[in-house]
Design a protein around this nucleic acid. Structure first.
Lengths: 238, 238
DNA sequence: GCAAAGCATTGATCTGTGTCAAGCTGTCTT
DNA sequence: AAGACAGCTTGACACAGATCAATGCTTTGC
């Protein structure tokens, strides 16, 4: 796009270049003037692959609205065991914690951009805006619902069910952004999937292979193609 | 208390009889007049052991603030496998869901009382009260934090670590209500603990016995007594 | 005081997933 | 083009926790 001369020059203005997902994001229901005021609080920040947005136990100084790319959210045990508690997509909101320290770590999987807000100004902006607070509630409630689904998966599903449910769930989340497709792109590696599902990388790999042998999926570079949606959804449901 | 003539006669008024945990509850920061208005929306309802407050997939018509007793919150798979996603204590708030249907089931473990609110009036009460919305956010964020801890537990801890972490976590939650004690009361049965930790009842039972043999706890009726808090916390942490 | 029921414990065995160890595939570097 | 590297797959084997099967311990009701 050579005619788009200054792609980074619109900070501080409503600018769809930075936020193709604005309607999905925390700021999606602000009117024009509110949004301008809100934008003045934001810094647009880019992160490279594997770069940390924040780490568990750090003091919370900022909150983030993800605009592009995917982040991995995880907790570590002292001996290095890792549990990925979620993957954040564009539109997702990060950084609320039950104390003044982050309760998990977040880092970029690929290149990633966020709107970053300092906690104080952000809190002052929302504290007397019921609409914004309601939206925060919706976001928190949705996250909680996902977390509860994940508890069921981690506690009570077999390896095969875990992988199938993960692929179905991931496909649905992508569908909100890109529309439903047969090919599900998987930007995260096998180890990330393993740490999300409470499995080892070997078991994840074997299970992918097994699902392919059973003609439910085809493994393609950076993802899978779902062949039999019906049988697949059934496996994921139960 | 023979001089307390009408112990159930104060519905509609501020009444600590119904709410020894008011300061911990959703309504804990309302002023006197707001609280009276809020109370007018509430019904005080009692449930007996095993009685259902609501079930997964039912339409959400009410939300609940737990005032006495303990509830078990769970999700079921079609084949009957169960995952308990949490235990609710007095002060906890139940019933927010990401859709218009409950995303889990809740039932009383023992006798239980709640403040029940119809969704519509409740929403109308909070929607223009930022303080109340902030409090809802705190509650949701705390729940989310607990859910994330539980994901780490379910995905990455051994049976012994799960049981130890459960006892430590449960003791801390009780401490908020009753103060820290050596004896941890466990109102839920072994099957409930198993379904919370992603284990079988046999493994939970064996693990309790093992912890007792190792002189970390003593099993007493309806609970355990913690002998070696230090070693115990260490096991729970990692 | 005894039967019945419900819950918890213990033992023997099995199995799904983890662990350890190669080997494979694609990409980047020089 | 060749080597090195990172990520993924496959195989052989081990083991934590599940399953199956008794048995024990309270509580409840008569």
């Amino acid at each position: 796009m050579p005619h788009l001369a200054f792609p980074n020059s619109c900070d501080g203005f409503r600018c769809e270049t930075h936020c193709s997902v604005r309607s999905l994001a925390i700021c999606g229901q602000l009117n024009e003037s509110e949004h301008q005021e809100f934008e003045r609080l934001a810094q647009h920040v880019r992160f490279g692959p594997k770069e940390a947005l924040f780490s568990e136990d750090e003091m919370v100084d900022s909150v983030y609205s993800l605009t592009e790319g995917i982040a991995r959210l995880y907790k570590l045990l002292p001996d290095g065991r890792r549990q990925i508690i979620g993957f954040a997509l564009p539109g997702d909101f990060l950084g609320m914690a039950p104390s003044n320290r982050y309760s998990f770590s977040a880092d970029a999987i690929g290149p990633l951009t966020v709107c970053k807000f300092f906690r104080g100004p952000f809190m002052r902006f929302i504290e007397n805006r019921p609409q914004m607070l309601m939206r925060m509630n919706e976001f928190a409630t949705r996250e909680l619902g996902l977390a509860q689904d994940q508890m069921l998966l981690l506690g009570r599903r077999s390896a095969e069910e875990k992988v199938a449910a993960f692929l179905v769930g991931w496909r649905e989340r992508l569908a909100r952004l890109e529309g439903m497709t047969k090919t599900v792109t998987l930007p995260m590696g096998r180890q990330d999937i393993a740490d999300f599902l409470g499995l080892t990388i070997e078991t994840v790999s074997r299970t992918f292979t097994k699902l392919e042998r059973e003609k439910l999926i085809v493994i393609v570079p950076d993802g899978v193609r779902v062949l039999d949606s019906k049988r697949f959804d059934a496996l994921a449901a139960a």
